[in-house]
Design a protein around this nucleic acid. Sequence first.
DNA 1: TCTGCTTATAGCATCAGTGCTATGGCCTGG
DNA 2: CCAGGCCATAGCACTGATGCTATAAGCAGA
Lengths: 99, 99
Amino acid sequence: MNDRVDWNDLRERRMAEPGVAEAYEATRLAFELGQEVRHLRERNGWSQSQLARAASMTQSAVARFEAGGTVPTLAVLERLARALDRKLDVKFNPKADAA
Amino acid sequence: MNDRVDWNDLRERRMAEPGVAEAYEATRLAFELGQEVRHLRERNGWSQSQLARAASMTQSAVARFEAGGTVPTLAVLERLARALDRKLDVKFNPKADAA
DNA sequence: TCTGCTTATAGCATCAGTGCTATGGCCTGG
DNA sequence: CCAGGCCATAGCACTGATGCTATAAGCAGA
């Protein structure tokens, strides 16, 4: 879906930067969250515009987010979760027993 | 420990604003995360400075965060998780079966 | 009491995420 | 062929989160 995208490059370049191993994780997380949201949204048969409305944001913001174009804010994630009728969970789990 | 703090006020006022129910959640989450980190940190017998070093940030940033002064970024949470030898988990769980 | 370590805040600069608006490309149904 | 809906991006302004530096207060311990 994103072949000539520009953010893929951006992301890859970001994750390649030296000493940014942690940032890499954040970027990866952002990407995964984006995919999850897209998944949930499609599961509900909603368009980006609809989700946007439900989450008090714009279609462009949703697109940007789903594409992993930015590392989302907790506030945004919260709104999306609400819109998707989910519960946003953020926690520090022991490495071993991953969730 | 934060009696004459200023952020408590700030936070409370934030959460009181009308139509900011979602933002409220984010603020609350930030607060809880701050407490959790503080807890973990103290459990390890570390000072804010030490944690800061380990997480590539400054003592002031850690203090601000622990006090719930700001809604943290995923990047920061990620770094803190690493420093505390934890795994940052962010997910959209079904409301019913809370985590 | 002076020293040193710890936490709480304050400014200030900078960067990144969001909102908003506007396209462009794609597809599908008139 | 045109209209309309959907998604990907762009450009711009604004706001908020961080980093950095410096300082004040509280608390030992020498």
